[in-house]
Amino acid sequence: MALATNQTERTAATTESVVVRYVLTGFALVFLTLFLFVPLVSVFWEALAKGWDLYLAALTDPEAVNAIKLTLITALIAVPLNLVFGVAAAWAIARFEFRGKALLTTLIDLPFSISPVVAGLIYVLLFGAQGWLGPWLAEHDIKIIFAIPGIVLATVFVTFPFVARELIPLMQAQGADEEQAALVLGASGWQTFWRVTLPNIKWGLLYGVILCNARAMGEFGAVSVVSGHIRGQTNTVPLHVEILYNEYNFIGAFACASLLAGLALVTLALKTFVEWRATQQHKGDAVPLEARARLASAH
């Protein structure tokens, strides 16, 4: 019903005068232009300031290529790990009642409220040369800090809640009726999961994965603490951007940054598409709006 009232034209009794509407819209758009749009455009502008040749040269630089590879590897490991975790957590939390559920939900969200730098630090304290497990790791010649495993761990930490927090409200809103019906009709647990649950949550799942991936590829603070900034080896794209920028190689820095900005734009486009598909799938019932409201309030 709430949806319907907002889609109908507002009457004079429930809206403001034309002048007020124009002024407010104007203020909002100017603010968004100055704070969001211009910074976004400036990334591409600066990257292409000296022409396409230098732009492409900066992107095909071996160190940049290595950084891109490492970023892709990190996301390829971290995102599936959190995907499996997110589904397991949503299944337990949205489908069962148990003591301590509220606490568990809060703990899952915890990594969002912890500074990325602190997130990096905790792994240094565990696995670093002077850390708890440091001597043992050194003895067995395993490198975690200043190496790829540390980068992956830090990335998993900062992207930990993404998939779970998209799925929990969605699955709670959908209820367990369909799964119960499948079980009563003789499907096994896994059959029910693959044939009933997964198709129902696919858009929410995709939404979570898209956001998780964007953060995984773009994380800076946490990864910066554990990476050691070894050029060509443990530099992800965001770290490479920092190094180039601090060396006053602005074309190189903004060229790599434009890749990440492009990734952000693709993320936003996909996200908008998935939101649209999710409302199409559930057109007529209130689930997506309610789920969206809860998602938004959880962000």
Binding site: E46, M217, G218, F220, V237, P238, V241, F254, L260
Partner: peptide
Amino acid sequence: VDLPFALPTAVAGIA
């Protein structure tokens, strides 16, 4: 509006 969620912080910083 969601750009700051999607744009890596380092990119926002240098821009």
